[in-house]
Amino acid sequence: MSFLALENINYTIGKNKLLRNINLNIEKGQLFSILGPSGAGKTTVLRIITGALNPDSGKVVLDKKVINDVPMEKRQIVMVYQSKQLFPHLTVLDNIQFGMKMKKYSQSYVDEKTVELTDFFNMKLHLNKYPSQLSGGQQQLVALMRALAVEPKVLLLDEPFTGLDNNLKIYIRDFILKIHKQFNITIVMITHDKEDAFIMSDKIAFMFEGEIILTEAPAYLCNKTNVNIVDNFLGDIILLEDGKIVFSDKIINIY
């Protein structure tokens, strides 16, 4: 059974039907991407998962329990926004510890978790700095640390590479993959970048105009899907040996 599921989710604002019959099944420990162009409704899906929005109809199920009526702060789901949303008046240390202190974790736990995360992210030298004193990549790391500090069941990533140059993007991408492996956490990422989705994901859901059109593992997307909108979006993909593909004029490894 799926660890996180969306069942027949619909969401409308005024006359605009933003989500149409969304069904997703995400297994525990998966890195699951929702891939599609801007305006497809991807962020709306994440906000419904967090509880920031209530669907018109349908169910959000986490660990076999329907959580539609569970408030955001009790869902054990954390979202890292593309804007990072760090507290500018708090140091890196205080940003990391904010969620733990709000949940009234013991000081010993807060201290232990802080050391664990700062060691893992190699951020010891930056703990007394403020967000404005950090690079965009460092700010993204702090946002990830703050999210992981409260040990969520699900980590949601909203376009995590927005505003990063290519070198920083690769650096943060590698860190997210390390997080996934180290903490064995279920991650749902939305992106419009095909390369990132293929490199990182166990499964990809393709979303266009408020609908999920296809969900598949990257390894099975190296041939035509016979779904025109998906095939046109992906373009030509050439499968090579050892799990490598030629994609967007680059050779990448998807295994």
Rank of each mutant, 00 (worst) to 15 (best):
F3I: 11
L6H: 01
E7K: 14
N8Y: 04
G14C: 09
G14T: 07
G14E: 10
L18G: 00
R20L: 08
N21E: 14
I22W: 02
N23E: 12
N23K: 04
G29Y: 13
G29P: 06
S33M: 12
I34N: 06
I34V: 15
L35F: 08
S38I: 07
G39N: 04
I49S: 00
P55F: 08
S57D: 15
K59R: 15
L62C: 09
D63F: 07
K64A: 11
K65D: 10
K65M: 14
K65Q: 14
V70F: 04
M72S: 14
S83T: 06
S83R: 01
F87D: 10
H89N: 13
L90V: 02
T91Y: 09
F98E: 07
S108F: 05
Y109E: 15
M123W: 05
K124R: 15
K124P: 09
H126K: 15
H126F: 15
S132G: 15
G136D: 12
G137I: 05
M145L: 00
M145D: 05
V150Y: 08
F161Q: 01
D165W: 04
D165N: 11
N166D: 12
N167E: 14
I170Y: 08
F175D: 01
I176C: 00
K178M: 08
I185H: 04
I185D: 01
T191S: 13
T191F: 08
D196T: 15
D196P: 09
D196Y: 03
I199T: 11
A205Y: 02
A205M: 07
E209G: 06
L214R: 07
E216M: 00
T225W: 03
T225K: 00
I229M: 09
V230G: 04
G235A: 13
I238H: 11
I238K: 15
L239C: 09
E241N: 14
S248T: 12
